[in-house]
Design a protein around this nucleic acid. Sequence first.
DNA 1: CTAACTATGTTATTGTTGCTAACATATGTT
DNA 2: AACATATGTTAGCAACAATAACATAGTTAG
Lengths: 208, 208
Amino acid sequence: MAETKIKKKRAYHHGDLRGQLLSAAGNLLEEHGPDGFSMSDACRLAGVSTAAPYRHFANKQDLLLEVAKDGLQRLGAQMEENASKHDRGTVRSISAIGRAYVDFAIREPHTFRLMFSTRSHSGRIEELREVGRASYGVLLREVARYLGEPDITETVTRASFPLWTQVHGLSFLAIDGKLEVTSFPVDIDESILIATERLLPPAATAKA
Amino acid sequence: MAETKIKKKRAYHHGDLRGQLLSAAGNLLEEHGPDGFSMSDACRLAGVSTAAPYRHFANKQDLLLEVAKDGLQRLGAQMEENASKHDRGTVRSISAIGRAYVDFAIREPHTFRLMFSTRSHSGRIEELREVGRASYGVLLREVARYLGEPDITETVTRASFPLWTQVHGLSFLAIDGKLEVTSFPVDIDESILIATERLLPPAATAKA
DNA sequence: CTAACTATGTTATTGTTGCTAACATATGTT
DNA sequence: AACATATGTTAGCAACAATAACATAGTTAG
């Protein structure tokens, strides 16, 4: 009875529809891919009419933009956490950041693609870029420590970019099933570690 | 009059609808992105009814699969041509292959994404992989020459994979506008050249 | 306390799309 | 010339994104 009452109280106004739609969108995106994902499905999953989302999001793109933003934020947090498990400013801590990157891609490939696809988030791309920059900052700071630079100097950005490039490429190859076509088993950790060592310039303070 | 007659002759049966649809699809894909691309638009562009394409392609995915296959083929050809402009089996010829890769991505970003997205080409993915393997072979053979290996040995595939990873990552970063967010101008040629030098193991026959 | 306001939900509707079915017309084979 | 096949058309369906008009809940002012 009490339950029914609560249910009825929450029957019309939903409580946290925005949050539930975001969560539903994330799940559906990963489950069925960007083409298989529909607003209608998200509504069904949230138990709400197909017009409801438009009180919270301008359109489909807008909803997916939020999913992407959330993904970028979680990626940054994971990178930071991974780095913190090693001595800071070392090849290992930098590699750990790369590992977080690739792991995220493998765990949520469709979200990952969305996070980096310029397409369709027209208008509010700058928001996405902002979150992206923040997450990229985790790598930049780590490389700065490694190089003994006091700040994010151009030396730091120049050294970081090839590393980003490498893990970005590895991520895409991984989620597109190209790690199984190579006639040898690709060890992700080893790949990142070796590439980091080779691509990084020697550190000022040589703490390997 | 003769023209009218010809026109009438070609009014119903189209001549090369399949080819024109592929070409229209490629253009529309690049112009409006994968979401903006519709069968209907392709039909309008080819001057044909919306049911016509289904005599030539099972569905939209199937059409796009062919676009992707064509892209992979052209990529392979371009890689080969770029390599042929340098001494074979050198860092320069290998870098030139990478340059062809990134150039293709920049020139046809949406086709490029399609070429490597496992999504949606369900069923006939293996065809795509086959063409992909053929194009990848261009790099493998070049690295084999560089290493002085007589064949595509595991040494060759192990050495090639990081190179692929790097240019693949660079391509995606480029088409997603990440080369302008780096606080320094990224020189693509230089990036590829340096990365190739650093990632490649030393050659048996040291012809730099 | 209640009236007005705002936020957030609903149903009904529209235009577009991918695709199929039923039908029409060319082309090629015998 | 008759038939089979390939390739086009029109008509129509169901799914979808989005909007409009309406309904209800929560919030605030008097």
